[in-house]
Design a binder for these strands. Structure first.
Lengths: 230, 230
DNA sequence: TACACTAACGAACGGTGTTCATTAAAGAAC
DNA sequence: GTTCTTTAATGAACACCGTTCGTTAGTGTA
């Protein structure tokens, strides 16, 4: 009945508890679980506290703000990104591995995408270390410093957009009852049908990723040719 | 003293005013102006009402909710998208025109990007008509129905990401004081320097756009070849 | 044993979007 | 021209949110 930690039902008196009931990690994991289960609405400090059997104000002994919680959630997700290719595989394969794991990790937690795409990256977070690793990987592979940023941002934009699409295409634009939207209606249905159970937009993602990578390969080759010519 | 509409300072009695002081259009325009001036914070129903010389509850005679206001703002911005190329120019040039105007319209109103990228598109809005036009344009040019959606989503993802980047790169990830981020620091500085007053990331946008379009041209050519072979 | 520190509770605070009763003008019906 | 419905303003709430603060109690150190 008791000791599960997550669901102490009856009253706890004020004052420090004998056994620790909260930690940053526990708060982050609970928050992520709630976000997945209930979506962006119904996810707040009071809900997190309730799920942990605690009063809302208790959270603030471990966490500075809700934004801090969001940062913690992001780090949980970013921890699953695959950086192992950089320095080992060719840069384009490493980048593809990173992009796929990026996409997959966010797609596994749909409601986080919208929230995290908007939020600036916290300093000192695991997330900023991830960016550092990718940046360094590309520069070691010969990409000029003044282009690396744009390469990452461009690719990332595409990834986030795809994750958005994968998470909630029917919500984002559903031509359901709207009059005068025949082309969209047809395109929407045709796509729905041609997917046939395939994870939606993973196909579009693979195609787009290949297009972007081949473009980048061509650009780097061109840059190297220009450099050799000097 | 009176009748200016936008800034009636002193008390107005309850009851319907002799001259109309509010309309949906006026509310949307005011809201967009406030969003541009003060950013996402300091933009709320109370602020909009104050700017219009009106009590907050008065807005709800013209507008269903804050979300409704957001939808109105989106339509204001989307109205500036350039759809003129579809049916006139080759599909790829029409698409490029659309993409550039899309990017430019949002970049002109930075705080809107984050808010609108997240919000689903309202039914019956000018925005959904815009999507209809693009969809029809691509299908008329020979794109198969089951691919159009993914083409648009992929390109749009890239556009929104670029607009994000253009709006607030220094906020999104600033490697300022963080230790152990040498590669990012170098890339960040090199890019900053090489821009030299150029509108940030418009260069990255042009490059990325060209990459995606050439990829799409190749794909459509391949699709046509497959069809001819049958 | 004394004292600082940590971490819970519980009651607030200021802010938000929104609703509702009230009031008064506009416009339609007879 | 009077009456009635509709429209659109005010102003006072409501529920909810993230957050702060005073209080209480257990932990670890001098």
């Amino acid at each position: 009945m008791s000791g599960r930690g997550t669901n102490v039902q009856h009253h706890r008196a004020a004052g420090r508890p004998s056994v620790a009931v909260l930690s940053r990690g526990l708060i982050f994991e609970t928050a992520l679980r709630l976000l997945d289960e209930r979506g962006e609405n119904g996810f707040g400090m009071r809900e997190i506290a309730r799920a942990l059997g605690v009063r809302p104000s208790a959270l603030y002994n471990h966490v500075r703000s809700k934004e801090d919680v969001l940062d913690g959630i992001r780090d949980l997700i970013v921890a699953r990104f695959d950086l192992s290719g950089f320095g080992v595989l060719p840069w384009d394969e490493a980048l593809a591995q990173w992009a796929r794991s990026y996409m997959g990790s966010f797609a596994a937690h749909p409601p986080t995408i919208a929230m995290l795409a908007v939020q600036p990256v916290a300093q000192g977070s695991r997330t900023s270390l991830m960016y550092e690793a990718v940046t360094a990987g590309l520069m070691d592979a010969g990409w000029p410093a003044d282009r690396v940023f744009e390469v990452i941002v461009g690719l990332e934009s595409f990834i986030i957009g795809s994750a958005f699409d994968q998470a909630a295409p029917q919500d984002m634009f559903d031509p359901s009852d709207d009059a005068g939207l025949s082309a969209m209606r047809r395109a929407y249905d045709a796509r729905e049908q041609s997917l046939e159970g395939e994870r939606p937009s993973s196909r579009a993602f693979e195609r787009g990723l290949r297009v972007m990578l081949s473009g980048l390969r061509a650009e780097l080759a061109q840059l190297n040719r220009d450099t050799d010519a000097d």
